[in-house]
Design a protein around this nucleic acid. Structure first.
Lengths: 122, 122
DNA sequence: CAGAATCCTTGCCGATACTG
DNA sequence: CAGTATCGGCAAGGATTCTG
């Protein structure tokens, strides 16, 4: 069985970036995962995302969405109307990503108490 | 089935932090996951970690280790010798965390090509 | 060897204002 | 409504130095 390490090291070879670090860099930021999760139930408009997330700025929401779109996690659909309406939805890739995430989420829920306890001990 | 959203929103209630965001904030940084992975095979000394990771600075390795220790992912053992020898190893909590991570790693490996392709299209 | 302390650069990100 | 453009504060993190 391959160790976790082999798959995470940044420079196994020179120019090829590590897939996991690549993915984590997208997901590890402050908002990406939250946006993906907010889109999980279905289609949402820009301002709807803004409202539901609450504490995200327009700029970060915009940037986050564009990067998620670029990476193929989210699809963007512009309706030629006035006022403009833009809808966002998860792609198949985006939905498939949330699958393994649920495992991590379950772990986090199950073990947060242990982490908080450890933190308090220290 | 609970949606992913319910478990990720930062403010379901007032003062309680979201477990997933809490965990991701630890793991999402530049080094934590890499350090955990490097410790996966077994016990390692400080300079050994430094060498194996390669592009981490002393300061960041130290900070990362202390935080991982605080949160109960890593155990630190000091041997009273000259020169000093300090060993780090994963705790049970740390090892258990790597379990769900493997799912994410597998996903990243399986789908990085799709992400790169999407990126190139954009 | 294992780290703590210091300095300094970089870029993330929030707030705000502006546009089609 | 759905963004982009600009400014600025602040914190992450690299390089280096110092110590037990």
């Amino acid at each position: 069985m391959k160790s976790v390490l082999d798959q995470i090291r940044p420079d196994n070879d020179q120019a090829n970036t590590c897939p996991i670090r690549d993915v984590l860099d997208r997901i590890g930021d402050q908002w990406s995962l939250l946006v993906l999760a907010t889109l999980d139930p279905g289609v949402k408009r820009f301002s709807q995302l803004e409202r539901e997330i609450g504490d995200i700025s327009k700029q970060m929401l915009s940037k986050t969405l564009r990067r998620l779109e670029q990476d193929g996690f989210v699809a963007r659909e512009v309706h030629a109307e006035v006022p403009p309406r833009v809808e966002y939805r998860l792609t198949a890739l985006g939905r498939s990503f949330l699958e393994p995430m649920r495992g991590l989420i379950r772990w986090a829920e199950a073990n947060q108490a242990a982490i908080v306890a450890a933190r308090r001990r220290a």
